[in-house]
């Protein structure tokens, strides 16, 4: 496929890409710190991945292989649309297979297959400020970050335990990066938080509407906030994936036509790879679901 005539490779002009790469370098140098950048108006709506798209566009080369997922799947409309956008404007290779990709742009998930040091994971971020629900004023949260004054966040967790007996945050679960900056991991389920820790892959975060980028460099400590006597824990399902029998993946609940339920991997590539390798689940029969 050819790049779109009249537009630069990967849509953004080279000056803009340089500006974003400078911001990314700063972000890598200060893990977890939100770097303001001159976010551009993209031809996709704000809140639909403009931050991730700008980050991807600014680091993308001709030889890269791009994978785009939304909710863990390559086939959801938003993932398809973003992949199509890069196909049209950059014309580079795309893939569904995690291990083949050099850049993976994601919304709300981290792939189940372990990443390696030659890969970059780009997160789409709606709200980069982890304290925004407790303190909406940016002038204040910036100061709290500067002073590493994160008591407020623990008050929230304390209150969860006092009220519910456990921490009631299930996604966008706040983390402390490299022992210094409190960071929103974007709305990934807390199931994925452990994958942020000591990842061999570079992890970049782009928030277009809020005009911030931040990063977790490879092999960086990432701790999910918790209490010593209420340690961080992740979701787990009683049963394996109904299609590939995986016991270690995040499962989506699907309501079937007959009213029954089925639990299947949210990571479509992981599920298909396992099925191709001969794993079968309890419900591995064709089912029609109209979109």
């Amino acid at each position: 496929m050819n790049a779109l005539p009249g537009y630069n490779f990967a849509y953004l002009d080279e000056q803009t890409k340089r500006m974003i790469r400078r911001a990314l370098l700063k972000a890598v140098a200060i893990p977890g710190y939100q770097v303001p950048f001159g976010s551009r108006e993209m031809p996709l709506p704000y809140g639909w991945g403009t931050g991730g798209i700008q980050v991807t566009a600014s680091i993308l080369g001709q030889e890269d292989v791009l994978k785009v997922i939304d909710q863990g799947s390559d086939d959801t409309t938003n993932a398809v649309n973003i992949r199509r956008f890069f196909n049209r404007t950059a014309g580079m290779a795309t893939t569904d297979r995690t291990e083949e990709a050099s850049i993976i742009q994601t919304r709300h998930r981290i792939p189940e297959k372990p990443l390696n040091e030659n890969q970059i994971l780009v997160f789409q971020v709606p709200l980069p400020e982890p304290m925004t629900r407790l303190e909406p004023r940016e002038a204040v949260t910036r100061k709290l970050h500067a002073l590493a004054d994160y008591g407020l966040m623990h008050v929230k967790l304390y209150e969860d335990i006092a009220r519910y007996g456990h921490i009631a945050t299930t996604y966008d679960y706040p983390v402390l990066v490299n022992g210094r900056y409190l960071m929103a991991p974007s709305p990934i389920p807390k199931f994925d938080n452990p994958k942020l820790h000591m990842s061999p892959a570079l992890q970049l975060f782009g928030a277009g509407r809020e005009k911030r980028v931040y990063a977790i460099p490879p092999w960086t400590r990432v701790e999910s906030l918790d209490f010593e006597d209420h340690p961080f824990s992740i979701q787990r399902w009683q049963q394996p994936c109904a299609l590939c029998d995986a016991e270690d993946s995040f499962l989506d609940e699907v309501v079937l036509d007959g009213g029954g339920r089925m639990f299947v991997c949210s990571d479509s590539d992981y599920c298909q790879t396992r099925q191709a390798a001969g794993h079968t689940g309890s419900e591995n029969t064709p089912t029609e679901v109209s979109a």
């Binding site: 008591g151 304390y158 209150e159 010593e228």
Partner: peptide, 21 residues
Amino acid sequence: NVSAGANVGERLMAVGARHYG
């Protein structure tokens, strides 16, 4: 908007207390 316990505990957490009990 937070409990009496969280109100009293806030300063402790701000200076690094991490044991809920």
